[in-house]
Write a protein that binds this DNA or RNA. Structure first.
Lengths: 99, 99
DNA sequence: CTATTGACTTTCCGTAACGGAAAGTCATAA
DNA sequence: TTATGACTTTCCGTTACGGAAAGTCAATAG
């Protein structure tokens, strides 16, 4: 059995966390993600861009209180990729408990 | 609860796998690791060097059949770091199943 | 209608991580 | 003394990040 492949788009710590946070939600506000990850706007924006580029995340820009706000959500492909990534991680880590 | 920190030394896919493979063993031959990871000698050597540099892995060079062979093993610090890293991963991933 | 402000986005920049290929080590074996 | 096997290092080019600063844009404030 070949080693399961870890998805480089998802593996990066910040993106792994973004995906994990989005998994149980329908969507999350940009600001919320930024606070959860404790990163700057630019860093979060760039990571989200990569996820969007991979087709894993979708954005919804809406106006609230007269201001523009961005919400992010996992696409079906994103949910699938995250699930597969976690499965791969578990297979790799499972060797640790005695192959 | 602050986000658990992923150890960058261990997080890299190849090194995560090296550590996972070494966890249940007392030691593993260089060649075995190279085959399990399907990487070149130089790549494996460089990743192991980083683990050694972090104090996570130790090397034992012995002669067998008149040839030099290298064996790698996790140090106590390495086992501890790997365990902590996996625990951090689980905490992050656990959010996915509904925070 | 123009300036401002909030909420991101991009660009610019420097550092560090990787992998592949090739050269270098070193302890034997021939 | 040379050749091997088994790594180790070096060289090189690509890519990934993060921080800082500049740029966008829509929705007010004036």
């Amino acid at each position: 059995m070949p080693t399961p492949e870890l998805d480089p788009i998802i593996h990066a710590p910040n993106r792994l966390q973004i995906c994990a946070l989005l998994m149980p939600l329908e969507e999350a506000a940009f600001k919320v993600l930024r606070e959860e990850l404790s990163v700057s706007d630019s860093v979060l924006s760039k990571h989200i861009s990569q996820l969007v580029g991979a087709g894993y995340v979708g954005l919804s820009k809406r106006t609230l209180d007269g201001r523009q706000h961005t919400w992010a959500y996992l696409t079906p492909a994103g949910r699938h990729a995250f699930t597969a990534h976690v499965a791969a991680l578990q297979i790799i880590v499972s060797h640790a408990q005695g192959s």
